[in-house]
Simulated assay, not measured.
Amino acid sequence: MLQKWSKMSLSMILAAVLAFMVSACGNSNGGSPNSSGAQKTEPAQTQPAQTEAAQKPAEKQFTLTAAGSTFVYPLFSKMFAEYNKLHPNVQVNYQSIGSGGGIKQLTAGTVDFAASDAFMKDEDIAKIKNGVIHIPVTVGAVAVIYNIDGVEKGLKLTQDTLAGIYLGKITKWNDPKLTADNPDVKLPDLAITPVFRSDGSGTTSIFTDYLSTVNAEWKDKVGKGTSVQFPVGIGGKGNEGVAGQVKQTPGAIGYAELAYADKNKIAYAQLRNKDGKFVYPSLEAASLAAASAAANMPEDTRVSIVEKPGEKSYGIVGFTWALLNTQYDDADKKQAVIDLLKWVYRDGQQYSEDLLYAKIPEAIAKINDKNMEKIK
Rank of each mutant, 00 (worst) to 15 (best):
253 I>W: 06
136 P>N: 02
304 S>N: 15
61 Q>A: 09
188 P>F: 12
226 T>R: 09
190 L>M: 14
179 T>V: 15
355 L>W: 10
148 I>C: 05
22 V>T: 11
174 N>L: 05
348 G>Q: 10
98 G>R: 06
317 V>E: 08
155 L>Q: 03
263 K>G: 03
329 D>S: 14
292 S>N: 12
213 T>S: 13
62 F>G: 05
145 I>Y: 00
291 A>Q: 15
71 F>V: 11
8 M>K: 13
189 D>M: 08
131 G>Y: 00
321 W>Q: 02
23 S>K: 13
276 G>L: 11
36 S>D: 14
236 G>Y: 07
288 L>R: 07
316 I>L: 07
361 P>N: 05
363 A>V: 11
293 A>C: 04
278 F>V: 09
2 L>A: 12
111 V>Q: 09
95 Q>N: 10
160 D>S: 15
367 I>Q: 01
330 D>R: 10
295 A>T: 12
249 T>K: 01
11 S>H: 09
369 D>L: 11
208 T>N: 03
83 Y>G: 05
102 G>D: 01
150 G>Q: 05
35 S>Q: 13
109 G>H: 02
229 Q>L: 10
262 D>T: 14
265 K>F: 08
97 I>W: 05
311 E>H: 00
345 Y>A: 04
19 A>P: 04
10 L>Y: 09
69 S>M: 10
13 I>Q: 04
203 T>W: 05
131 G>N: 03
122 D>A: 15
316 I>C: 06
266 I>W: 04
147 N>W: 00
240 E>G: 06
264 N>G: 01
259 A>M: 10
148 I>A: 04
21 M>L: 15
258 L>A: 03
210 Y>D: 00
142 V>Y: 00
52 E>V: 14
267 A>I: 09
227 S>Y: 07
132 V>S: 06
30 G>N: 09
374 K>T: 13
155 L>I: 03
166 Y>H: 01
268 Y>S: 02
176 P>T: 14
191 A>G: 09
236 G>Q: 09
247 K>Q: 12
98 G>P: 07
189 D>K: 10
143 A>G: 10
213 T>N: 13
181 D>Q: 11
131 G>Q: 06
293 A>E: 03
183 P>F: 07
103 I>R: 07
9 S>P: 00
288 L>V: 02
75 L>Y: 11
248 Q>T: 15
170 I>W: 04
18 L>C: 13
73 Y>E: 11
125 I>C: 14
221 K>L: 13
185 V>K: 11
286 A>S: 14
171 T>N: 11
67 A>I: 04
48 P>W: 07
311 E>C: 02
292 S>E: 12
50 Q>M: 15
272 R>M: 15
374 K>S: 10
189 D>C: 09
205 S>T: 02
21 M>F: 13
120 M>G: 04
317 V>F: 05
375 I>E: 08
350 Q>P: 05
339 D>G: 02
336 A>N: 04
182 N>D: 04
147 N>P: 03
156 K>T: 10
67 A>K: 02
229 Q>T: 15
362 E>W: 04
281 P>T: 08
323 L>P: 00
218 W>L: 08
282 S>E: 06
240 E>F: 03
227 S>I: 11
101 G>D: 05
219 K>I: 07
226 T>Q: 11
341 L>Y: 01
130 N>K: 14
302 R>P: 00
115 A>D: 10
153 K>E: 15
267 A>G: 13
348 G>C: 07
367 I>M: 00
206 I>N: 03
93 N>M: 06
122 D>S: 15
